[in-house]
Structures are given as structure tokens and as C-alpha cells.
């Protein structure tokens, strides 16, 4: 039949062209992925976590939109203080768009600060035993750190994520070496002088003399730039380091160590 013959010819044209374009397209897709421009088709594993419509939309090229929709839901869930749901939604948004820095940042913030703050301050003693409270605070802090660390595997040069992790190690789960490391990376990425000073301040808290020397070099450099670059914490730590490193008196800064607050 003539029309069937024509349809077969059409199919043959498409197939031959298909064979030719396969390697070309594979190369281009590899180039796009190599540039980390976008993710590929959504994993079938996502199918279980998304609703049918969300999965279909993500499959159809609306991945970013689905992620934004989930992000709005995250914000609304925050009001309900449903931390489990919040964690699940954060996992989804970061899985859908692992190269959106803000999603990792907010996920970590919700876990390490909002959730821990809730259990520390908003749940009365009558409702929760101290051991459980402490365990929950520790657990959510760890979840916050985990989000940032995973985010950094996708975005190793994200100053924001390094800064967030540094702050976590500074305030929530004190670990001066780790904090210092991430403040330094944040400074390398963003170039903000306060970040370099924060790096130095963390080095002061460490126990290795070579780190103190590095801290001293940095803080002295800022001090030497003039009045506008001198901060109270910078002066305080310089005085501490001058003692630890036995800096000769003629080379010490003229200020006295600030009186500790009572």
C-alpha cells in the first residue's frame, strides 16, 4: 500500500538520521554536563519521592520550577515546625537542583539553627527529657553540617557554603581547625577581608604554634593597614598571640589588651 510504503520511508529517514546524530548528541550532552550547566533526566529513585505530577514535570524539563514549588512548601512547612517534613523537602530540592547554592544553605539553616533552636528554647521541660533534647539538638546540628558538606561536593567553590559551614563549626559545634579551614576557603572564594580575619581568629583557638604564627601574620597585616582596619577582637587576639609567640616588645602593638567583660 502506497501510504504504508511512504510511512516506512519516513521512518527510515528518521532512523538513519538517528544513527548519525547519536554520537553528536552524546558528545554535546557530555559537554553540557561537564560544564555543570544542568542535571540530566531525573533518576527513577526520585519517582518515589515526588508526586506523579511533580515527576512528570521534572521529566518534562520543568525541574527548576518543581524545585521552586517545593521551596515555597518548605517555607510554609517551617511555620508548622514539622522538622521531619522540612528535612524531606530539603532533600528533594537539593536532589532536584544540586547546583543551586541557596537550597543547601537554607536546608542547613533549617536543620542546624531553626530545628535546634526549637528544641532548645520552645519545647518545655515537661514535654521532653533533657537527654532527648540534647540528642535532638546534636542530631539536627549534624544534619545541618551534612547538607553543607554534600553541597560542597557539587559546589566546591561556593563561598556561601564554606562560610555557613565555618559558622556552624564556630558556634554550634565548636571545632576551630574545621572552622578555620572553611573560613579560609570562604575568603579565597569571596575575597572579603572580614572572612580572612575570622579565619585568623579561629586559628588562635587551635593548639598548634604554626597556626598561631599564621594568625599573627594575618592580624598584624590588617593592624598595619591603619585605624579603619583595626577591630577590638583583632587587637585582643594580637595581644594573646604576642604572648604566645614571644614577639619582641619593640614589635608589639601599642594598645593594651582589652579588659575582659564581666
Amino acid at each position: 500500500m502506497r501510504s504504508r510504503k511512504q510511512i516506512l520511508i519516513a521512518l527510515a529517514i528518521i532512523s538513519v538520521a538517528g544513527i548519525i546524530r547519536l554520537p553528536v548528541e552524546a558528545k554535546l550532552e557530555a559537554e553540557i554536563r561537564g560544564l555543570h550547566f544542568r542535571e540530566g533526566a531525573p533518576d527513577l529513585a526520585l519517582r518515589d519521592q515526588l508526586s506523579q505530577m511533580q515527576f512528570v514535570a521534572a521529566l518534562g524539563g520543568f525541574r527548576s520550577l518543581v524545585a521552586s514549588g517545593l521551596d515555597i512548601r518548605t517555607y510554609l512547612t517551617l511555620a508548622d515546625k514539622d522538622w521531619g517534613e522540612l528535612e524531606a523537602l530539603s532533600n528533594l530540592t537539593t536532589t532536584l537542583q544540586p547546583r543551586v547554592e541557596k537550597y543547601w544553605d537554607m536546608a542547613s539553616w533549617h536543620m542546624a539553627f531553626n530545628a535546634t533552636s526549637h528544641y532548645q528554647n520552645n519545647v518545655p521541660d515537661s514535654e521532653i527529657r533533657l537527654a532527648i533534647r540534647n540528642q535532638l539538638v546534636s542530631s539536627y546540628t549534624d544534619k545541618g553540617k551534612a547538607f553543607l558538606k554534600k553541597g560542597l561536593t557539587y559546589l566546591p567553590d561556593s563561598g556561601e557554603l564554606h562560610l555557613a559551614l565555618a559558622n556552624l563549626y564556630r558556634s554550634k559545634d565548636p571545632n576551630p581547625p574545621e572552622a578555620a579551614k572553611h573560613f579560609r576557603r570562604a575568603f579565597e572564594c569571596k575575597g572579603n577581608p572580614p572572612l580572612e580575619r575570622a579565619y585568623a581568629h579561629e586559628l588562635v583557638k587551635c593548639s598548634e604554634p604554626e597556626r598561631w604564627q599564621t594568625a599573627y601574620d594575618i592580624l598584624k597585616r590588617y593592624y598595619d593597614q591603619g585605624e579603619r582596619s583595626r577591630t577590638p577582637s583583632g587587637i585582643r587576639d594580637l595581644k594573646v598571640l604576642e604572648e604566645r609567640l614571644n614577639i619582641p616588645f619593640p614589635l608589639r602593638i601599642r594598645e593594651q589588651a582589652p579588659t575582659p567583660r564581666r
Binding site: I14, G18, R38, S64
Partner: peptide, 14 residues
């Protein structure tokens, strides 16, 4: 692979 178009190539919005 051969018959269907790769439409993901044009998904550059994200």
C-alpha cells in the same frame, strides 16, 4: 535511542 529525539538537549533553562 534512534527514533526518538533527545529533547533534554534543549532543556537549558535550569
Amino acid at each position: 535511542a534512534i527514533v526518538f529525539p533527545d529533547l533534554q538537549l534543549f532543556s537549558l533553562v535550569d
